[in-house]
Write a protein that binds this DNA or RNA. Structure first.
Lengths: 179, 179
DNA sequence: ATTTCCATGTAAGGAGTTACATGATTTG
DNA sequence: CAAATCATGTAACTCCTTACATGGAAAT
């Protein structure tokens, strides 16, 4: 009851808004929540089975087309309770954010200047590209629509954009210092 | 030869500067590189054994006090080659940064205002505390010493500080918007 | 008609954490 | 002399990724 992995809670959270299939969940992890959590079928289907077993979710089978079976999972009252319990509890521990780029920076420092500059430039481009992608997504999803600006979805996208902007600026500033 | 986990490369990188024991490595992962990568004995000792087996490192035994045996590992030319190879290769993939707080924000949005505000305030305090800790470390380690400002160690600490500052500001600004 | 997407799942293995076990040395 | 730290290691477990297997439906 008490010890349950985070993925289960996230699945419950997603099901709280709308019924979803395993495949739908996978899509969610590629888009909406994908900036902050990811999971694929290797985790999703086994996790759904556990939740089903614990009566935190149920499912209906829908036929798509002629015979393709789609299992649409719904959250149960027990599932809602579990989810709310998790949401109430404070975030217990902060695992560090592993960052391979920062490690390379740590190892390279000023002994190896050409490589250093190239490393930083490449990293800056990566964040630039990601930023462009995120801004496009924000525009597509929300446009000028002011009334949605407080939604969770908007907030997480906004944070991702600010985060990428920050990192790119830090990199570009470092690059300027090196020259 | 080619397929090797990142931890191995990081250990090699750390050994490139100075010989270290397993215990020393553990300490490094708690301090210097700890903001961007962590590992404990459950990974370090097995990893050292693999590196030893592949002749990427060797070790000497030193006696501390009367009989406590300390194995000091050194990097070999083969180890240096492996490490340099890794450093040259571009960072291949960017695993997302999992963030439980952002997920909660996504789930809470504006339906649950009291909880939302509390969640953000608590998160802000966490980053404030971390910031204070990092600034103290920076001061202790570098002080007003300008000549070290380009070292890898200084850079990663600076980035960590800027990152925490950014996140705290984003949170505080969100909190202001909510009121 | 072929490619892409929808849809459900499993198996194997790698990465990482937690807990334990043992003992020496240093510090207060 | 007790507590904290130094020091090496293993076992069990969880989490997560990768790759595979199968097949239907929709789009071009």
């Amino acid at each position: 009851m008490s010890h349950r992995d985070k993925l289960s809670y996230i699945i419950l959270g997603l099901l709280k808004t709308e019924p979803l299939s395993g495949y739908d969940l996978k899509k969610k992890f590629e888009s909406e929540v994908g900036e902050f959590w990811q999971a694929n079928t290797g985790q999703i289907y086994p996790s759904l089975r556990v939740l089903l077993n614990d009566q935190a979710v149920t499912f209906d089978v829908h036929i798509v087309g002629e015979k393709l079976e789609k299992k649409t999972y719904q959250i149960t009252p027990k599932g809602i309770e579990l989810f709310n319990e998790w949401l109430k509890h404070p975030v217990d521990r902060y695992p560090i954010q592993k960052d391979e780029f920062m490690l390379r920076l740590y190892f390279l420092d000023d002994k190896n200047e050409e490589n250093l500059q190239k490393l930083i430039e490449e990293e800056s481009i990566v964040h630039q590209k990601k930023l462009e992608y995120l801004i496009k997504r924000q525009k597509d999803l929300f446009g000028e629509d002011e009334k949605n600006k407080k939604s969770g979805h908007y907030l997480v996208l906004d944070f991702a954009i600010q985060r990428e902007t920050f990192k790119k600026e830090w990199l570009d500033s470092l690059l300027k210092d090196l020259k």
